[in-house]
Design a protein around this nucleic acid. Structure first.
Lengths: 132, 132
DNA sequence: CTTATTGCAAAACGTTTGCAGGTTT
DNA sequence: AAACCTGCAAACGTTTTGCAATAAG
């Protein structure tokens, strides 16, 4: 893979916008530093970086793909209220159990929680009310 | 929700094509019994049925949505070789741990395994060779 | 000099929607 | 008759692609 200003810029954006940006968000931010940048190039470079293992793709059902600079295994919480995506760690024991004794040949396991993030949950049930 | 021939036909297809059909597959099959059926109607009815809780939507990253008649909680294995999607049960203890102690207010948890199904894994590593 | 990479625009893809007409209740 | 549902076709949002021009090695 040959060096390119655009690719490094995309990489930097994924690292600095740590909140799992979409391609569009990366494009809008990167354009400030490189006005001629095109959205197609952002997509192409995100695919390059994912394939090279420098970036992870985060797919949330019904949403555009997001991109994550954290390479270590983790899951994501998608908040249906504010739309944010938060990293959620998983106990190593649970991860082991998730992968153990499965048929076939597992190469990856994606875990996504759907619900409200902590801030939105607090907003929804203010006065210390029980939150399921 | 008012009765309609088309909706019941879509429901039947999800039940009889038990291998998590896509909207397109449901459309192609249902058209044999109802030639005038349109793809838009299939999508509209799948959305109705999902909203009514009679059908579950299965989202696999980078793939068109699939639909599942099994309502009980379970995960899916997506085979990158043949493209099939298989149900995979999860130990109730693991499910409890997946949901316990999470911040916010979790309403659902999606678990998807990526790899090879049993048949494709056997094909890839024939003579009893170690798999992973 | 060779070939990866770019910007652009068009197209692909899965899915949704507006509308006029047909069905269900 | 009122409300819902349909087929059709156009539109949508996201992502990919073909191309001629540019930049990297």
């Amino acid at each position: 893979m040959r060096y390119s200003k655009q690719r490094e810029l995309v990489m930097q954006q994924v690292e600095s916008l740590q909140d799992h940006p979409t391609a569009e968000e990366i494009y809008q931010n990167a354009r400030k530093e490189c006005p001629g940048l095109s959205l197609g190039t952002v997509y192409r470079n995100l695919n390059n970086l994912v394939e090279a293992g420098r970036v992870r793709r985060v797919s949330i059902p019904g949403q555009p793909d997001r991109f994550d600079h954290t390479l270590a295994w983790h899951g994501h919480l998608y908040c249906t209220a504010c739309g944010c995506v938060e990293d959620l760690a998983l106990d190593p024991g649970v991860v082991r159990q998730l992968l153990a004794g499965k048929p076939g040949h597992i190469t990856d396991c994606v875990v996504t929680w759907i619900g409200l993030c902590e801030a939105c949950a607090r907003r929804a049930a203010p006065s210390g009310a029980a939150a399921l």
